[in-house]
Design a protein around this nucleic acid. Structure first.
Lengths: 216, 216
DNA sequence: CGGTTAATTGAACGCATTCAACACGAGTGG
DNA sequence: CCACTCGTGTTGAATGCGTTCAATTAACCG
């Protein structure tokens, strides 16, 4: 679901010169919780990287149903879109510090080839996430989906206790479930002692092997 | 779901020199229906392009559940993976003619930059498909999913009558439904005169606007 | 401490699944 | 040409699970 995030800052290796350019030419913008970073339908002009906080992309269907695309963590590049316009809206899930740079500026600084290469790497990561997300949504039951979600979160967090920056509604919209079902599954997983919630926004995996067997 | 496929052969524009190289250095392989083109877990070495027929990628979960990734049509590039190994198995859905080339050969012929650029374009398309697929699976009801699937198929086919190269089970595994549910939804959509099935593997959209409103 | 939002829990419903039977078409051989 | 079979698709009935709507509790902040 997320890029490899054992190392909190991966400016160096995979992104090559891009991150240097972002650091040199990019501006840093701060967004408050729930602030919009860019909107669905806007033209794709910039590249974004999370410095601090967590970003969520989302989309509204015609009937008002919300679909959460992905969550982006510090070090992650986002705002990559295939078309000329954004398909998703990006919002600050928590208070955020975002580094922004115009694609043209990058192009001018490091050339097309370098930019392509950098975007290539980011696209690979993005595709991986999308496939992992699809796999999650393809699981049979709600318990499997929620379990898989927690597992993915935990597997990218070195700490014993994992923070949940997103609320239940975000999880629900990410997994294609209702908020009530998510809540029920969380309590169920907890009652089976597979995970443990010291607080609403923090959990610990007690039985990783069981969690993995659930998420299939 | 599919790349822009109004023109059946898009060797020219978006892939640049890659397709030329594939034509020059690539071999053409023929696969019978259900033959394996590459397997989950195998190292990523080649690039593939569909010449004739339809290809399906799929994956088996630990519990034996099958998940269909995508369907690839003539002109489509496939076999792009982020990691060193294939996450999915590729199989010939129908009898196929596939053009195969070693990535190294392409690299030697047109250089890293060109290869990157070509893969970049293909990755964009792949990401778009993955997102469209996710959107489909995120829809509420089975009718919405099946309707959306048919709509996507129809929207990429210029002909009035659209062929369904895949069976009901493939649709089910693509949408995360059971084969019975898919069948029921198809008959329901037909009974509402939204679509029409002259034969099991062929359909026609009678009310595009209704179909679109269903797929949201 | 109230006031507000988020999260949990409960009960009834509806829809997709499950298990089973049946229909249909293609291919084969009598 | 019919009978047979096999694979695939459709239909039926009952179950189960996620949803829906509603009420309660918990957490956060003044």
């Amino acid at each position: 679901m997320f890029a490899d995030r054992p190392n909190p800052d991966r400016r160096s290796a995979p992104l090559g010169g891009l991150s240097d350019v972002m650091d040199r030419f990019g501006a840093v913008a701060n967004f408050q919780r729930d602030a919009e970073i860019y909107a669905q339908g806007e033209p794709v002009i910039h590249l974004f990287r999370v410095v601090k906080g967590v970003v969520r992309t989302a989309r509204f269907t015609a009937e008002g149903r919300r679909h959460v695309g992905e969550f982006y963590y510090p070090g992650d590049l986002f705002g990559l879109e295939s078309g000329p316009d954004h398909d998703f809206t990006a919002e600050a899930l928590t208070d955020c510090e975002i580094r922004v740079v115009k694609r043209n500026a990058v192009r001018a600084a490091i050339g097309d080839g370098e930019l392509d290469l950098a975007i290539l790497g980011a696209l690979h990561i993005e595709l991986q996430r999308a496939r992992a997300h699809m796999l999650l949504m393809g699981l049979r039951g709600a318990k499997e989906k929620v379990g898989g979600f927690l597992l993915a979160l935990a597997s990218h967090s070195p700490a014993a206790s994992v923070e949940l920056p997103m609320g239940r509604q975000d999880m629900a919209d990410y997994l294609g479930l209702t908020i009530e079902t998510v809540s029920r599954m969380l309590t169920q997983l907890q009652s089976e002692d597979i995970v443990e919630f010291p607080s609403v926004r923090r959990f610990k995996v007690n039985r990783p092997e069981l969690l993995e067997s659930i998420a299939a």
